[in-house]
Simulated assay, not measured.
Amino acid sequence: MTLEFAPSARSTVGLEWEIMLADPASGDLVGRAPELLDALEAESEDERHTVTGELLTNTIEVTSGVGASVSDAVDDIGRAIAAVRAATDPAGIELLSAGSHPFAQWYDQQVTDKTRYHKLIERTQWWGRNMMIWGIHVHIGVEDQRKVFPIINALAAYLPHLQALAASSPFWAGERTGYASNRALVFQQLPTAGLPWPLHEWSEFETYLDDMVRTGVMADASEVRWDIRPAPRWGTIEVRACDGLSTLPELAAVAALVQVLVEHFSRALDEGRSLDELPAWFHRENKWRAARYGVDARVIVDRAGTQRPVREHLTETLEELAPVATDLGCAAEFRSIGRILEDGASYARQLAVADAAGGDLTAVVHHLIREFRSGPEASLPDE
């Protein structure tokens, strides 16, 4: 199989954000996307952003256009959210974002009536029906196909950092899981999901796809659901490891970190330097640690097995790569990673709200609704 990697401008940014629809009183999910999407999709036809449906009818996804900078892509997402709110507010629907809903049950949710989704559920059964998960995807343009897998393999060492910053699924079906990101471990149960295979050449990826298509595992490259993957149609590397960010500023921060890391690795390749890679068994352990402990995790950062706290390693990364962020025009968004480390990621804020409310998870949903409207400064209810 020969697969073209589309031309793409270097270090451009594209964002996708999956958003929950909820009842404003009960906080439970509502499967009302189908009644909204025809109009929203039509309205976005002439815009840079798009508004579409997803696997479940309780979800709407918004995507940006191709941004020359993080702020360009984030502005697109902001306009998309405003368009969605113009439809959901009059309809009595609230919006929120996290990796999981605190108490909704899978058997109450409806699958969107599309062949691709029905085929997925038919194959995956119970695990597929339990995919009550929401995430963000960050695309970064890569100008040379030969760079794709060296950058993916180097960037994989930072997947636990990204996963920890975005972790927002500490509850599952009404239970406190003890994990910062329960979504991370649920999602990897799907076929072709989870950590990427350690490939090094584009031809190896083509061989992998040929094997998967020939054996009926998938129809095409769009069904590769790795935590980080090539997106040949767009000419990008796509990071998919992150839970749904609860606020737009946090989405911007994580997008900036991904963009800066990709550009940093791209520059190293331009200079003829090889990029460091971790063994696959370290990636597997790091993913679990980040899912369990979030930004309090200690992760393995080199082949020697050196272990560092995520907070400490990220702080050093912010200092080291600040000039790259300045060059890319995302210095403010990049610095705001520090705010997440200081104030707590979404999972920590949700747990604090649950504790303050005596374990009432409806309070957590209302907290997430407030945050989605107003940002992390709205994390605690008014007294």
Rank of each mutant, 00 (worst) to 15 (best):
181 S>M: 05
182 N>P: 04
185 L>A: 05
185 L>D: 03
186 V>L: 13
186 V>T: 03
186 V>W: 02
187 F>A: 05
187 F>V: 06
188 Q>Y: 09
192 T>I: 05
192 T>H: 03
192 T>N: 09
193 A>W: 09
193 A>T: 04
194 G>F: 10
195 L>P: 02
197 W>A: 15
199 L>W: 03
200 H>Q: 15
200 H>T: 15
202 W>R: 13
203 S>N: 08
203 S>P: 10
204 E>K: 10
205 F>W: 09
205 F>H: 08
205 F>S: 05
206 E>S: 11
207 T>V: 08
207 T>C: 13
207 T>I: 10
209 L>P: 09
209 L>Y: 12
211 D>Q: 11
213 V>N: 12
214 R>M: 08
215 T>M: 07
219 A>K: 15
219 A>Q: 15
220 D>S: 15
222 S>L: 06
223 E>R: 14
224 V>L: 10
224 V>D: 03
225 R>P: 06
228 I>H: 02
228 I>C: 01
230 P>Q: 13
231 A>E: 12
232 P>K: 08
232 P>T: 00
232 P>D: 13
233 R>A: 15
233 R>T: 13
234 W>N: 10
234 W>H: 14
234 W>F: 14
234 W>R: 07
234 W>L: 10
235 G>F: 05
235 G>P: 00
238 E>R: 01
239 V>P: 00
240 R>P: 04
241 A>I: 09
243 D>M: 04
243 D>C: 01
245 L>K: 06
245 L>M: 12
245 L>C: 14
245 L>R: 08
245 L>H: 04
246 S>H: 00
246 S>K: 00
251 L>S: 05
253 A>L: 02
254 V>W: 01
256 A>G: 08
258 V>Q: 03
259 Q>Y: 13
259 Q>W: 07
260 V>N: 01
260 V>C: 05
262 V>Y: 03
263 E>H: 14
263 E>V: 11
268 A>I: 06
269 L>I: 06
273 R>W: 05
274 S>A: 13
